[in-house]
Structure formats: C-alpha cells, structure tokens
Design a protein around this nucleic acid. Sequence first.
DNA 1: TTAAACTGAATGAGTATTCAGTCATTATGA
DNA 2: TCATAATGACTGAATACTCATTCAGTTTAA
Lengths: 217, 217
Amino acid sequence: MVHDVKSQVSDEALVHRRRAQIIAAAVELFSHQGFYRTTIQDVAKKAGVSAGLIYQYVTDKEDVLLLVLLSVLDSYKHEIPAALEGVTDPLERFWAAVGAYCRVVDQRREATVLAYRSTKSLPDDRRRLIKESEIETNGMIAACLRDCVKAGLMREVNVELVAYQLVTFAHSWALKHWRLKELCDLEEYIAQGFDFFAQALLTPKGRRHQQKLKSGG
Amino acid sequence: MVHDVKSQVSDEALVHRRRAQIIAAAVELFSHQGFYRTTIQDVAKKAGVSAGLIYQYVTDKEDVLLLVLLSVLDSYKHEIPAALEGVTDPLERFWAAVGAYCRVVDQRREATVLAYRSTKSLPDDRRRLIKESEIETNGMIAACLRDCVKAGLMREVNVELVAYQLVTFAHSWALKHWRLKELCDLEEYIAQGFDFFAQALLTPKGRRHQQKLKSGG
DNA sequence: TTAAACTGAATGAGTATTCAGTCATTATGA
DNA sequence: TCATAATGACTGAATACTCATTCAGTTTAA
C-alpha cells in the first residue's frame, strides 16, 4: 500500500528513509496546524530538506497526507497483533486487543485526531485505502469478540457493531482528550471502559471466567 | 453567542435572515467539499448573493465556519429539551434524551461530521465557544444519567464519562456512517445501543423498572 | 565522468478581502 | 406635492497575496 505512492527515486532503502523523514515532519505540522494551513515549504524545512526534494518521493501534497495517514493506521495494525502474541485465552485476548488499541491511540493521539479531520481531504481513490485499512483493524477486534461469543463467554451480540463501539471508545480518548483528561487518566479510562463493556457483554459463564482471570493471573 | 459575530448591518431581523441564508449555503458546501476547498464566492453563489455582501455580515471566512458550527450545536441544544418535554420518569427521560440525540445526529449527519473535521480550523477563542456548547449538551445527558443513579435505577458509574460514551455513540452514527449503514439502519442502531447501555448500566431494580416501561407504556 | 539526488528561486494559478460605485428607499424642505 | 438629498444594502471587478509545483542548475558518490 505504501507502494501505491509513486517516487522518482529508485533506491528503495533511500525512498523508505526519506519518506520516514517527510512523514515525521508532516505528522507534527499537520496535527498542529492542519493540512491546509501547512505548506510544503513548512514540511521541507522541518524535515531538513528542500521543497523540491519532497516531489521526488511523492506526486503531490495529498500524497504526503496519504503517507501520514497510512503510517498511523499501520501502527494500529502492528501493535494489536503484537499484544495478542502468545495469549490464547479468548477473554484475555479480547482485553489485550482493546487495551493495546487504547494505548496506541494515546501514543499517537494527535495523529489519530488528524486522521478524523483529514481523511475527507483525500480524493476518493486514496480515501478508499484508508477505509480498507480501518476495516482491517476493526476486523481484528471483531475476531476477538467472535471468539468470546463462540466460547460462550459473551452474549450473542452484533459483533461488527460492538467492534465499532470498542474502536470508537478508543478513538474518543484522542478526539475528546481536551475534556477527558480533566476527568481521568488513560488507565482509569481503560479500566472504566473494561468494567462497562464487561457488564454489557459477559454471560454468567463469562463473568465467572473473568473472576478467575482477575484472581489467578 | 451568535452575537459574538459582528456585522456591519444594524437591522437585526435582516442580519438574522441573511445569516440564515449564508449558513444554509455554507453548511452544504462545507459538508461536501470541506472548509478550505470552498471559496467565499461558492458560498455567495449558492446563497444567491454577492461575495461582498457576506463581508457585511461576518468579518472573515472563519466567521462563516463559526456560524455554521454554532447552528449545528444549537440544534442539539434545542432538540434534547424538546424530547424531554412532559416526560417525568427518570429512565424514560434518559432514553428519550439519548434517542433524540441520535436522531438529530442522523438528521444533521453531514454537519456533525463537519463539526469534527473543522473545529480545529478555528482560532482558539472561537473554538472555545464550540467546546462550551458541547459541554452544555453533554451536561443534559449527564443530568439524566445522574437522576437514574439517584433513583437507584443505575449503578454508581462515573456519570461524566458515561455521558461521553453516550454522546460518542450518537456521533459515531455520523462519523462512521459510510460503514455502519451497511450493518444496520438508524433504528436498529439505536435499539442495539439501548440494549447495550441497559446491560451495562441498569441495576436489578432498574431492570425491573425497564420491563414495566416496555410492557406497560 | 556521469547519473542520480538534491536545491531553491521562479512561475502561475487560485482566492480572501476590499472598495468604488449602483440602486432602492426614506427623509427633507420649498 | 414633488424635486432633491441622504442613507445604507448591495454588487462584482480589482487587488494583493499565498503557495503548490517546476526546473535549470549544483552537489554527491560510484
């Protein structure tokens, strides 16, 4: 998918390095000033390169935005499977996935907000790439949910919809941070979310299982 | 608050009428093309006035955005109390408020998305107006929640936080409509949300009360 | 030596804002 | 009564400026 963005430069390692440089500068500027208020010259300056150079790695300004957004979504796509590594119990996997999601959102808070603000600034075809990536991430959460339902630990809910609610819960930490940070910190936010979703989703069997996890370890 | 925006024209009724005209055009254009892609000439054309006229009712382009956003938040602020009119039972009031919120979001879906996308495009002082308005609306939901908790119908949750989750649930219908509309329609969305939040929040007493409401009417 | 990477000033398209002037309406005064 | 003036909403072309993008030329490294 990064390969959908065309570059004049052929050396792949160089392309990768330069783009990382450009993305890092752009994330910061776009997050703070927004896409339209940020000029390519700003990005170039912050990245320590010339304006012309950027156009060797990207076809237009919107491509820079696309790269930035894909880099955010990529961090979701990597962190969640990493958090599930080696965990087998369905309920544990579920909490691990949701917790990991919340923590990535926290780490990349400004970029997450940027994604909400700017996705529509992309032309349709590039926007589709973003949506697909989001659906993929959602799918990971949905899969964890489904496993819990299958194991009889959770009620028979509409898995896709609930996955959205979970994702939204995580995103809200970024979107409404200006207010939420006055109400609680990240770990409290996660804890109350867990409590909330547990109440809503767990079957009696699920609840017993949950108790065991809590006490056991 | 609308009065924070200055106009050259003194006739108040005229100001109101003209602004409504400008806002109507701007909501549509901003929603579809975004704030930065929309020119003042576009707005003027759609509103059937000259570009110059707009500047008699507004000091700059950002003021147009502010007026648009305030008009969206105002519709929340009016619809919720309207839905609560004459309802006294705390649980009924709660569902009425949340349901009303979801329906306004649905009616003004594009404008809601616009609010998420564009609030940061405003300078800090004007953005504060928006945030205050949002806190006020949230307060209405929080108050309903608090009454349910006091009446022993709901668990002792962090009312402010849960209010945010409810608001977020409503907003998501707009923000993720591109995906959610494939999973369900608005009424299903609301129904599954009610089920979900009921499970998470109601006490045994609350559950019995809820049953009574459902069957009785 | 030369191809690839890079620079940064120049170009030109796009657009927020202004302002000199028009027009309809209302006040003035003879 | 009816010219004449004053008012203030309104118009839209002109201004002034901001950038995305290009490209002629320079540097780098093999």
